[in-house]
Design a protein around this nucleic acid. Structure first.
Lengths: 241, 241
DNA sequence: CCATCAAACCTGTCTGTACCTGTATCTTTC
DNA sequence: GAAAGATACAGGTACAGACAGGTTTGATGG
């Protein structure tokens, strides 16, 4: 019973085997970010399979966001280490006192938001809404509140029912073939509204750091809209460029 | 808005790579407005590609309005890089009410700052200090204050004496062969100290948006350290990635 | 001093070749 | 009958080379 390879997939067709080999080479760093893969014909000779099989494998790697292939040129590794595109180059919130923080999920459901849809230039106005708040476990002090909105699409319509994969939103989206690529961000300082102040159990009017992000896929499709309210005494933003 | 380019994504195709290299040289000021680019054949040798590839790259740069090429002569930079350092992929401060703003130069001199030198990992502890403040001309309201520190080096030692070239710090540094390339940034919210509050003519303890940036040259040498204090009612930060 | 001409360099355009991916069709194998 | 193989063709990308025509420069000769 002991499969030395990979426990998650036992029944292995040839494409799957090739996917697993190449994926390991990529994830291990043997094939680094930006490297060009062998051409399809080279892979045909390397694995002694037909080109159709090789192409199935590459197509799966592409769906998982590990490679990108261009006609006439070849396939390139788009997997950037462990953090992938989640943090690479984006503003990163440095939590100063996160040891005693607790996260509450305020809601995870499907909502209608025509205003946001209009602002993002979307056709449908349905979103999956994920709101989360973080407070200090000791005294209930406010730390942060995060509103995430994901445009509704068939691949993820049962997300609110099934819940998140491994508790991670991005892991769930990755599963659905959605990979962050680029976007836009706004940062300013705002006074807390009454509603938010109540959630965070602090005075209305308290100044909070606000970041708003629109994240898009490679093709430019809006993938997520996030508004974060951060307690400035707990957070600083950091970025490399 | 529409990003035909891919900033963080990897290069697929040689022309794209070359475009990115040349674009950075132009936007960083290394190739200034009006400069002539290397000839196509020189670029062929420099990048070890064919002339068709070079020509594709130049055509794309031309499409982006960065260069203009003339038959029998060559290609010239048409990008006027005033905005360079503040805009190209970096966080951009959006001034909400800048019409009536006045800029005061608080000081331009050589200073000693061992603490900063240590933090930046520099040998010498001498810096050229340029401090500037912006206030609203109508009511004297505080808008922003900026502390710039440039590590002392032979090329610029007479900068405080000669003054800035065209009033621009970056033009002056460019003159000295210093081109911004990459760096790091921190953003947080702080209460104004008494000294700064006095300069800005507002209450000590007022919450201000603070950004700190370390800008480095291509070789990784520290080129500038900037601390900006921004009045949150006048500023928002914006960034594309 | 000045007009002229040739050489050197530049961009614009075209050719042919090699290799790459995209796609479709048919056959083999289990 | 589904998965994999084999094959052929279309179209994209890049390389190498050749040629035409514009621009600059400098030497030549009046």
């Amino acid at each position: 019973m002991a499969r030395s390879e990979d426990s998650s997939a036992i029944a292995a067709g040839k494409p799957e085997k090739i996917v697993r080999i190449l994926e390991r080479e990529i994830r291990s760093g043997q094939l680094a970010h930006g490297d060009q893969l062998q051409s399809e014909n080279q892979l045909v000779r390397r694995f002694s399979v037909s080109r159709s099989t090789v192409r199935k494998s590459l197509s799966e790697l592409s769906r998982r966001g590990l490679i990108k292939t261009s006609v006439g040129i070849g396939s390139f590794v788009t997997f950037d280490g462990n953090v992938v595109a989640d943090e690479a180059g984006w503003t990163k919130a440095l939590e100063k006192a996160g040891a005693n923080a607790v996260t509450r999920t305020l809601r995870l459901e499907i909502v209608e938001d025509a205003a946001l849809a209009e602002k993002l230039g979307l056709d449908g106005s349905e979103f999956i809404a994920l709101d989360r708040a973080r407070t200090d476990a000791r005294d209930g002090h406010a730390i942060s509140i995060e509103h995430s909105r994901i445009p509704m699409m068939p691949e993820i319509e049962n997300l609110p029912v099934k819940g998140l994969r491994d508790g991670s939103l991005h892991a769930t989206l990755r599963e659905a073939g959605l990979f962050p690529d680029h976007g836009e961000e706004w940062i300013d300082v705002v006074a807390l509204a009454a509603e938010e102040a109540e959630i965070m159990r602090c005075e209305p009017g308290t100044m909070f750091l606000r970041t708003r992000r629109v994240i898009r896929t490679q093709e430019g499709r809006v993938m997520e809209h996030i508004t974060s309210l951060l307690n400035p005494s707990h957070f600083a933003l950091h970025r490399e460029f």
